[in-house]
């Protein structure tokens, strides 16, 4: 395996080692638990690609109701008013809160979509062994690992709104179907990121 400036890097597979992902202790490949912290160790995450594919596809499916159903239902003087994610963004823009509108738009629409397409890209790299893209892939992986949780922002906002606005007949807020679907979708993308083993993108090099 030749990389970059013609430097040779032995991998853990080539040197018969297994890395503990919890504490970074390097064990012999025959070991089943980490000698340092006691965690179960695997040379590569077990069934990584299969699990990542499933979580990613499931997340994509959950995004559909998440964007079509109302996120929260505001009842004002007996009149129900549902708000989807996109309507929430438009609400902020219309009331002059451009920056908040953009934050919600990025957190709840751009980030989930970007994460899911990035995951598909990573899966294709690992599945078909497109090693030339591995370095780009690992950069993308680091990015989605970092931004993943911010898509839950809207769920927290809905939660606070529900708790704050409870004035019986005057005004009240209830969670809509999208809140649940969206929360599940975000969790699934986070689980997909956790199930994905970025080393699989580099591994194909030896064949």
């Amino acid at each position: 395996m030749i990389c970059g400036m013609g430097m040779y890097y032995p991998t853990d597979i080539e040197s018969g080692k297994t890395l503990c992902l919890e504490c970074e202790w390097l064990s012999d490949v025959h070991e089943r638990t980490c000698a340092q912290c006691g965690a179960r160790i695997y040379q590569r995450k077990p069934m990584s690609l299969l699990r990542t594919w499933s979580y990613t596809i499931a997340a994509l499916l959950f995004l559909i109701p998440a964007n079509l159903l109302p996120m929260m239902i505001i009842t004002k003087l007996g009149i129900d008013e549902g708000n989807t994610i996109l309507e929430g963004v438009i609400y902020f823009v219309r009331y002059g809160e451009m920056s908040i509108g953009i934050i919600i738009f990025i957190a709840s629409i751009i980030v989930p979509l970007f994460k899911i397409s990035a995951l598909f890209f990573l899966l294709v790299i690992a599945q078909f062994g497109i090693v030339e893209q591995a370095k780009n892939g690992v950069r993308l992986f680091r990015l989605i690992e970092r931004i993943g949780k911010w898509s839950l922002l809207d769920i927290f906002v809905v939660a606070i709104m529900i708790a704050m606005v409870q004035f019986q007949n005057l005004a009240s807020v209830k969670a809509g179907g999208a809140a649940f679907a969206f929360g599940v979708a975000v969790f699934l993308t986070m689980m997909a990121t956790e199930a994905f083993d970025p080393r699989l993108m580099f591994d194909k090099e030896k064949t």
């Binding site: 890097y9 032995p10 080692k17 890395l19 992902l21 591995a134 080393r199």
Partner: peptide, 12 residues
Amino acid sequence: YQSACKECGVVL
């Protein structure tokens, strides 16, 4: 100290 990269598997 010997370890390996978590993200690409190189022994370090």
